[in-house]
Design a protein around this nucleic acid. Structure first.
Length: 463
RNA sequence: UCCGGAGUAGCUCAAUGGUAGAGCGGGUGGCUGUUAACCACUAGGUUGGGGGUUCAAGUCCCUCCUCCGGAGCCA
């Protein structure tokens, strides 16, 4: 006989308190905090089924009363008692315990204390931090957000494609790559014979699923990938991690306008879904992490995203009454300060910047007639910066081949990618959405290390 | 990787070159409705590592390490 059916879930109490009022219930969970007096006490119990805890009242009529008052934070319990409403108190209802079974007492050296901890400290105990209010809320929202993304694409007929994590496609222009090898590095002879690799060639962890997903776009029209990606950059910022998750849709018979429309619809859909399905967590973020985050999300849901060309953006920045550390000059990348000024001060909402100079964008982007720009788009959001990067793809085989030659890319490795243009080319477009960056925007968390369960950043691969 | 800041009790932080402290957390006791509970008592230290200056270094100098922030790279 299993244990699961023997207890109620706190989540159900909050969803329909009337159904349990004055009824005998059983719960299991962990002590979040405990207060006791001479003849009675209170436990706040967390059972993992929802953000909120339930208050347990216990008194000296229990045979193990003295033991219970000595319980430490984190100790696990099974409790039977009566659920009663408490309209005059802070909590809506509580359980008056008839029996408390102590399953395990937590060691008093538990690093999670009944006090406020800094996020920096909690990162050093990432395996324990899901027991705190903030991280419990962050990671439940992470789960709900992932579901919302799948739901969005599924409802629109997109096919979910599992693109490879190990790839031989080098230098996609998206950053440094981790090399994957089965060769014994301490015994390796130079020059390295990559034919001796288990996979028969030099391989890496993927920096993007875009190229393979484009191939599947030929068969299914609208597709997306959603999986981990890896960048071996020595980036030390609150917005970068070496391992992160990315969503990459690819749509057929579509141009850049369709691409932006999809991005905007998706953002609005997932924001709405999280607000509706994580209301307790969002209320917590709004009160303790980032005051006003709910209002900001609602504003985005009800506003039209801005659009400006790169060339116009440069003009807007030059006209602005604002000193920048770096000058804006056509042909150079926009600096972070420029991007923030555009989204936070000029547009005051998410804004697409489109039609970037050829020289600062990837080889596969569609070339405009002006010969100077490509059909690329970046979506900038206040506070987080670049959250989406996408483009209409170059679907003309000759133009693409020319660009690949200029980049020195070998047809051996990329020939299959040209086939997507060779056997019935079609206009198509897509984008990459940084999953953690959306999560930061939604929760108001300021550091990417605090929205990844076990973050990998330079010097950090513990757990 | 570059620039800046910080490393002192379990945690968050004090300490003019001169006896290393507080709050929280822990432990013990008290308290008849608490919810950041409250009150009393108590234990707890290789001041990030190494080297140097000085009668004397947490404090000044050199160096290394780590973390945080800004920049770059980008999602």
């Amino acid at each position: 006989m299993g244990l699961i059916g023997q207890v109620n879930h706190i989540r159900d109490f909050f969803e329909d308190p009337n159904a349990y009022d004055n009824r005998t219930v059983a719960v299991s969970g962990w002590v979040r905090t405990l207060r006791d007096s001479k003849t009675f006490g209170f436990i706040e119990l967390h059972d993992g089924t929802c953000f909120k805890n339930i208050q347990i009242v216990f008194d000296e009529k229990l045979s193990n009363f003295k033991e219970i008052t000595k319980l430490t934070i984190g100790s696990s319990l099974k409790i039977q008692g009566k659920l009663v409403k408490t309209p005059q108190a802070k909590q809506p209802f509580e359980i008056q315990a008839g029996e408390i079974v102590i399953l395990a007492v937590s060691s008093q050296s538990n690093p999670i204390q009944k006090k406020r901890h800094t996020f920096e400290y909690l990162r050093t105990i990432a395996h324990l931090r899901s027991r705190t209010n903030t991280f419990n809320a962050v990671f439940r929202v992470r789960s709900i957000l992932a579901y919302a993304i799948h739901k969005f694409f599924n409802e629109r007929g997109f096919v979910y494609v599992h693109t490879p994590i190990i790839t031989s496609v080098d230098a996609e222009g998206a950053g440094e790559m981790f090399q994957v090898t089965t060769l014994e590095l301490d015994k390796i002879k130079h020059p390295i014979d990559y034919a001796k690799e288990l996979l028969g060639r030099k391989t890496f962890l993927t920096v993007s699923g875009q190229l393979p997903v484009e191939a599947f776009c030929m068969g299914f029209r609208n597709v997306y990938t959603f999986g981990p990606t890896f960048r071996a950059e020595n980036s030390n910022t609150p917005r970068h991690a070496t391992e992160f998750w990315m969503i990459e849709p690819e749509i057929a018979f579509a141009d850049l306008e369709d691409d932006m429309k999809l991005a905007e619809e998706m953002m609005k859909f997932i924001f709405t879904y999280v607000l509706e399905n994580a209301s307790q967590e969002m209320a917590f973020f709004n009160q303790f992490i980032d005051k006003g985050v709910i209002e900001r999300l609602e504003k985005v849901i009800h506003s039209d995203f801005g659009v400006t060309t790169y060339t116009e953006a440069i003009e807007l920045l030059n006209k602005a009454d604002q000193k920048f550390e770096y000058d804006t000059n056509w042909g150079a990348n926009l600096q972070t300060e420029h991007e923030r000024f555009l989204s936070e001060k000029i547009f005051k909402k998410p804004v697409f910047v489109i039609d970037y100079p050829v020289g600062i964008k990837a080889f596969y982007m569609f070339h405009n007639e002006d010969g100077k720009t490509v059909r690329a788009m970046d979506l900038l959001v206040p506070g987080v910066g670049e959250i989406i990067g996408g483009s209409q793809r170059e679907d003309r085989e000759d133009v693409l081949l020319q660009r690949m030659k200029e980049e020195g890319m070998s047809e051996d490795v990329y020939g299959w990618y040209l086939d997507v243009r060779r056997y019935g080319s079609f206009p198509h477009a897509g984008f990459g959405l940084g999953f953690e960056r959306v999560l930061m925007y939604i929760t108001g968390m300021k550091n990417i290390r605090d929205v990844i369960p076990f973050p990998r950043t330079p010097n950090q691969a513990a757990f």
